[in-house]
Amino acid sequence: MRIVLDSEACQGHGRCYALAPDLFDADDDGYSVLLVSGEVPPELEEAARLAADNCPEYAISIED
């Protein structure tokens, strides 16, 4: 599984780093920062889906 963050679309809603703190962090302005480089470790796949499914801006996409 690969995960992609569209930083242009991110508006800092903060859902991803609340739901998947091992995959996302907040920068000083509250925008999302992706902590993994593309490939999601198997144990974090569920968290990745949760983050993608809760982004109001559809800024996170998952490629299986």
Binding site: Q11, G12, H13, G14, G30, L50, D53, N54, C55, P56, E57, Y58
Partner: peptide
């Protein structure tokens, strides 16, 4: 589990105080 709600708005005016 899947809740992309827009209670805090969308786009550049996303509620500043949402956190």
């Amino acid at each position: 589990q899947r809740n992309r709600h827009v209670a805090f708005g969308l786009g550049i005016h996303r509620c500043l105080g949402s956190n």
